[in-house]
Computed example of a mutant assay.
Amino acid sequence: MTAVGPDPRVVERLRCPVCGEGLTITADGGQALRCPRRHSFDIARQGYVNLLTGRAPHLGDTTEMVAARAQFLAAGHYDIISTALAEAAARHLPSPPAGTARAYPLVVDAGAGTGRHLAAVLAAVPAAVGLALDIAKPAVRRAARAHPRGSAALADTWQRLPLADASVALLLNVFAPRNGPEFRRVIDPAGRLLVVTPTAEHLTELVDALGLLRVDPAKVDRVAASLGDHFVEESSTVHRQELTLSHAEVATLVGMGPSAWHADPAGLADRIGGLGEPVRVRMAVRLGVYRPR
């Protein structure tokens, strides 16, 4: 799938991260987006647009982490998450008003990584277009090619999102930071926010055996605190599955997550080698569905 740049239907919902004006694709070959005040943002050859301003405070996942995530997801190990999001999207995506410019609802994945989950949602809702936001260049390079109706932008989701007010019909947030005030600003009053977080039992076998980072026992409370002033939780479901992994797949799983920043590679390899093979691991995640206050 060849990425040529952001979909014009997505671009009309974007806003300049400098002044907040609308953006359009430049007429000179479409290699940039530009606002009326002539702030310009390059479209990379991989198809994503760089909407960062100034120096990013952090770079996000490394090339190696993103490659590990792409490999692990491509094997289908986390398809249960994609399926749950797609089913929730099909239930909750507002029906677009016929004959209006919003006849194609916008789905945004904030902290999208490779764009695999967004692609699954777009496959389930054929009328929608999608936008993957991530601060890691290796991630948005992949996300820009994840689905024909998907676009991607380099952006810091802790900052003001480069989107118009009430322009998003469905916002996804999977294992990513939650910017409650900005999520509320950009979501349509009839829209929904879908948040996926790990439960305390997620990958506990590996956490114990390999000394990995443990899920915060107060995770549910922290999610509620970050969103409670802006959203009401309508429902939540827990999705569990037993994974059967090789030693190489365990290494890939560790390498794609936050423990990759802290683990000693040699010591980790020794500990993985000491596990029985195949390795059986429980994954358990919580999907919360939220409506704007």
Rank of each mutant, 00 (worst) to 15 (best):
I25W: 09
I187Q: 07
G267E: 14
V285G: 04
V254F: 13
P36C: 14
R160K: 15
P17G: 08
R286I: 02
P105W: 06
I272F: 05
Q241D: 03
P96T: 09
P8E: 00
L163P: 07
Y78D: 11
E21Y: 12
L52R: 14
A98F: 11
H202F: 07
L194V: 08
S167I: 06
E12H: 04
A74L: 02
D61C: 12
T100F: 12
P138H: 05
D208F: 02
R13L: 07
T197K: 10
T26E: 08
R141L: 07
V238S: 13
W261R: 15
A75L: 08
D42P: 03
H230I: 11
D208Y: 00
S95F: 04
M256D: 06
H58F: 14
V220M: 10
T204G: 12
G180H: 05
P265Y: 08
L245F: 07
A110M: 06
A86L: 09
A67S: 04
L210A: 11
E234Q: 15
H202P: 06
R178L: 13
L85A: 06
M256I: 07
A209T: 15
A3H: 02
L161N: 05
T83R: 13
L73M: 10
L243E: 08
L210S: 13
R214K: 05
N173Q: 11
D229L: 11
A90Q: 08
G150A: 13
L131M: 13
F41E: 02
A209D: 15
R45D: 12
V215P: 12
L253S: 13
V220D: 11
R271L: 09
A74D: 10
L245A: 05
Q71K: 15
V108T: 14
P6N: 06
W158S: 09
A190L: 14
R45S: 13
A200D: 10
P217C: 01
A74F: 05
G255I: 08
P177Y: 11
S259M: 14
V168G: 10
G150N: 00
P126I: 14
G130E: 00
A123D: 12
A127Y: 08
Y48F: 08
G288M: 03
V129I: 12
M1H: 04
E249Y: 05
L23Q: 01
S235W: 04
L210K: 13
R55M: 02
G276H: 14
L163S: 10
A139D: 00
A190S: 14
A110I: 00
D216S: 15
S167N: 04
